[in-house]
Design a protein around this nucleic acid. Structure first.
Lengths: 109, 109
DNA sequence: AGATATACTAAGTATTTCTTAGATTTCAAC
DNA sequence: GTTGAAATCTAAGAAATACTTAGTATATCT
């Protein structure tokens, strides 16, 4: 029974970017230090799924949006990760651009 | 005990966009018709959280990425929903634009 | 008011995650 | 290539959560 979710690979990538061990990250998320390692491993191997509150703490600690964990391909993942760096004004401009984009390619002026 | 997640409001918005009742959507997702209504209601009221496989079927049926359910504000939600309409080439261009964007506002040329 | 469609909820059952206690893997130093 | 330590992983019972059932509540017609 292969219960797929993209979270394991996204979580691992974001954790390694920060140079943290599974246990270190778990402890930063206020997990019991005795179970932090096991839990984080279960998440990264896809054995178990964290609840939303845990995902939110992970995301905040790792500097990505929660939505990042649910991107099924690397391209979407990179884009959504970059979104976190934009302010609302920039997001508004981007949205307007996307809305008006039906066949054109976005470019920087 | 307020266990927040953005999924309920996103799910409801996407479902209503499609003009479906909770039960209709549940049945489209292959749920037992006898429990489809109760389950969908529990998701939309935030009582329970669906597993990934269920979220994936919801997303496909409603025409949004799974990541859409995890956007905490309307702006991010709209942007991520629009992302689904882009092909890989357009996404690559967008990513390049975001990567080089540190203070500038994106525009269409 | 009555009928119907839609949404919601309590409670028990079923299923999943979390904790515990270790086993396995990785890897640097010797 | 063996040792030791750090990191990751895993089985199984305890704890928590979702799913099913059966029904209640709410809204909208006629």
């Amino acid at each position: 029974m292969p219960k797929y979710s993209p979270l394991p690979e996204r979580l691992k990538a974001a954790r390694l970017d920060r140079g943290l061990t599974q246990q270190q990250l778990g402890i930063l998320l206020d997990m019991d230090p005795n179970s932090a390692s096991a839990r984080m491993s279960q998440y990264e191997t896809g054995k178990h799924m964290p609840d939303y509150d845990t995902m939110k703490r992970m995301a905040d600690e790792l500097g990505v949006p929660v939505a990042y964990f649910f991107c099924e391909n690397e391209l979407d993942a990179q884009i959504i990760k970059q979104l976190g760096a934009l302010d609302d004004e920039q997001k508004q401009a981007l949205l307007a651009q996307l809305a008006s984009l039906k066949a054109r390619t976005p470019v920087i002026r």
